[in-house]
Amino acid sequence: MQFLATFHALDFLDSVVSLVVAFVLGTAIGAERQYRQRTAGLRTNVLVAVGACQFVDMGIHLGGADSAVRIIANVVTGIGFLGAGVIMKEGTNIRGLNTAATLWCSAAVGACAGADLVAQAVLLTVFVLAGNTMLRPLIDALERLPRDEAATEATYEVGIVVPAAGAPEAQGILVARLDAAQFPVDDIETLERAEGRTELRATLVNTSVRPRELDAVIAELKRMPGILAANWTRSGSD
């Protein structure tokens, strides 16, 4: 049997150690993600770490270090696709970037374990956990700091509510008014509302805006006939 001819106890033991290390460290990373109810939790991070470990370990046993390097490059690419699957866009907000980055790091931990770089795998796990836990107080402190909105980058939207029948004309008015105020429009989203109304939401090209200038535009839009309501919103930019 081919299995008996190629089986080597020491090589097998080496693979067992690598997989156990990847499993334990992937569990440590995944447990933190599971506790915080993230999209990719315990099982996902464990499977990513173990899978990356086995691919690299298999590459080393079949083709040596050069083969392992090529496999690692493909693991990085493959995890990029997996990470893209957990990133979600909700309006102008993007969620899941941290989860995708954590999956990427779990794959790196598994690859280290597969390459028998156990110390590096443990060290990387410590840094991943530190980044996901110890940095939270710093993030909270930074979020509480007063900031000049004109000096920070964000995504700005201007919205108006109009009768559905007047939406095409209102869209032209909205774009023209924003252009006149030097707020070029990147995109306009049309949303159907109750009672025969339509909301038009214009995403601005500008990422740094003085709130009082937008307030002036909103005040002018509210005075225009056919516009039932107007407002602007700001969301953080990644």
Rank of each mutant, 00 (worst) to 15 (best):
A5N: 14
E149M: 12
V217K: 04
A202C: 08
A22H: 01
V16N: 05
V175P: 00
A101W: 03
V158T: 06
G83M: 03
Q171F: 10
Q120E: 13
G131P: 08
V50N: 05
R144E: 00
R147F: 15
E220M: 08
L214C: 04
Q54L: 15
V24A: 15
R201Q: 11
S67G: 06
V185Q: 03
M224H: 14
T233F: 07
V75Q: 01
G91D: 04
A154W: 08
L135C: 05
V128L: 04
V86I: 13
R201L: 11
T99I: 07
M224L: 13
L138C: 02
A9T: 14
P163I: 05
V128N: 06
A28I: 07
T27E: 02
E143P: 00
T133D: 13
T203F: 09
D187M: 07
V209D: 02
R223A: 15
I94G: 06
V17F: 07
L117E: 03
V118Y: 14
P137A: 10
I188R: 01
M224G: 06
S235M: 02
V86T: 13
L19F: 07
C105P: 04
L204D: 05
D116N: 12
P163K: 08
E153A: 14
R147L: 15
F55Y: 12
S67Q: 12
A22V: 01
L117S: 03
A73L: 06
F127L: 14
L13N: 03
E213N: 13
V50I: 11
A49M: 03
A111S: 11
T44N: 01
A151T: 11
V128F: 11
F55A: 06
C53K: 10
V69D: 11
D187K: 04
A108R: 02
S15D: 15
L13K: 06
G96L: 02
L228A: 11
A180T: 11
R136I: 13
G63T: 07
T99C: 06
I218C: 05
Q54M: 15
V205Q: 00
R212P: 00
G59C: 06
Y35T: 12
D57T: 10
V205S: 00
D66L: 05
T133P: 09
